[in-house]
């Protein structure tokens, strides 16, 4: 097993870096898109709410693999050349944003309704009330579930392996195929994933306890 680390550390580190990069990009992207669609879902207008829920339901109910492969195979045919990394990251962002939208919406709903009325009565516009009163409180409530979404995101980024995204799983597959030392390779890959996800997971549990 040691010979894999000594001879293959370069692709492994490269893969680890791409996994982290992809996860961070997808995290930021899906937070923005997710919050946007959460706001749509609680809009006053029925048609806007409908758009919000259609987006969320579509991306929640289709496998990430289908979304990522769809981007990888279909987008270059008609729209633009797109690398496996980009296709996978976009797919991951859209997929995760649907879950984040649901989480944020639940957070907003958990903030007491009277506060919005109070803010409106004090002369704030609806948008201002959201921006300054509701969302900051909502985000505090949703930090632990968001953290769990981020852990899921890191794990789900392994889907990049299917679209030649040069992530940790992809490099792991290549090394396993090359050296034919399947189990030791995947064992090392597993430890590298755990280095990212396990501390995060314990930190989130700690936060959850602290906030409760």
């Amino acid at each position: 097993m040691l010979d894999i680390i000594t001879t293959q550390w370069h692709p492994l580190l490269n893969g680890l870096w791409n996994t982290i990069l992809c996860s961070l990009i997808a995290l930021v992207g899906s937070l923005v898109i997710g919050t946007f669609f959460a706001l749509l879902e609680i809009s006053k207008y029925r048609i806007v709410r409908l758009i919000g829920s259609i987006y969320v339901e579509v991306f929640r109910n289709i496998p990430l693999l289908v979304i990522a492969m769809g981007f990888f195979l279909i987008v270059p045919m008609y729209i633009a050349k797109i690398s496996g990394f980009a296709a996978g990251t976009i797919g991951l962002t859209l997929y995760t944003s649907a879950f984040i939208a649901e989480t944020v919406r639940a957070g907003i709903n958990s903030v007491e309704g009277g506060q919005l009325e109070g803010a409106l009565a004090n002369g704030l516009t609806h948008a201002q009330a959201m921006r300054y009163i509701i969302l900051p409180q909502a985000f505090r409530v949703v930090i632990p579930p968001l953290g769990n979404q981020f852990i899921n995101l890191v794990k789900n980024s392994s889907v990049l392996a299917f679209v030649a995204g040069f992530d940790l799983m992809y490099e792991g597959n290549l090394i396993a195929n090359d050296t034919l030392q399947t189990m030791p390779t995947y064992f090392i890959v597993g430890i590298l994933y755990l280095i990212i996800t396990l501390p995060l997971s314990y930190y989130m549990r700690y936060l959850e306890k602290k906030l409760a």
């Binding site: 990888f72 195979l73 270059p76 299917f162």
Partner: peptide, 10 residues
């Protein structure tokens, strides 16, 4: 997958 990727100009 490889053939499909070739066709989609990857």
């Amino acid at each position: 997958q490889a053939m499909t990727a070739l066709k989609s100009k990857q």
